[in-house]
């Protein structure tokens, strides 16, 4: 029996298992899109992971979520949303289309009303740069060559969906 795999199989599997988002503009996104039935079955049967393929990105879902990573990401973005809103900006539009300086972000987080919560996620020793680097490796943001500015990728929409889900459950609980 010969084992045939789609093109770029190694890269696709390896990237997804690293927790990386495969974005629509990456070379092998098309293969993943075309062969999504194969890959969905592959990850389900091999590892019991669910592969999510959307128009603009694909990623793996697992039952065991990296608590710290998820917490850090959500705290940072939540604080930024709060602060940008205070500045009177349209947060979703800004996050989806803006470019951000690492320094500006750091200052905003440290001087926020929620700076106590920022401290709770213990980024002190390694600094925000290291965390942003991890986000970059996972394709959640794209750092530029100087590593001083970055943009969010489409994967950030998971944060918006998450926040909206919390809001919906709040709304539902106040209705009862």
């Amino acid at each position: 029996m010969t084992f045939e795999t789609p093109k770029n199989h190694y890269e696709i599997v390896n990237d997804l298992l690293k927790g990386k988002f495969i974005l629509w503009n990456e070379v092998y996104f098309d293969t993943l899109m075309k062969e999504q039935d194969f890959y969905k079955a592959f990850f389900k049967e091999s590892f019991d992971y669910e592969l999510v393929v959307r128009k603009e990105f694909a990623y793996l879902l697992s039952k065991n979520t990296s608590e710290e990573f998820s917490k850090r990401f959500t705290v940072i973005l939540s604080i930024l949303c709060y602060e940008w809103n205070l500045q009177g900006r349209d947060i979703k539009d800004r996050i989806e289309n803006g470019s951000f300086s690492v320094f500006e972000i750091q200052t905003l987080l440290e001087n926020s009303t929620y700076s106590d919560i920022f401290k709770l996620i213990k980024l002190k020793e390694e600094g925000i740069e290291k965390f942003l680097k991890e986000l970059d490796q996972r394709n959640i943001i794209k750092l530029d060559n100087s590593k001083e500015t970055f943009e969010f990728t489409k994967a950030v929409s998971l944060f918006f969906e998450f926040a909206k889900e919390i809001a919906e459950s709040k709304l539902a609980s106040t209705k009862q």
């Binding site: 604080i79 979703k92 926040a163 809001a167």
Partner: peptide, 13 residues
């Protein structure tokens, strides 16, 4: 949409 995101973000914090 913006208010939902902010509600969620603040509730999470």
């Amino acid at each position: 949409s913006e208010s939902q995101i902010l509600t969620g973000a603040i509730a999470y914090l």
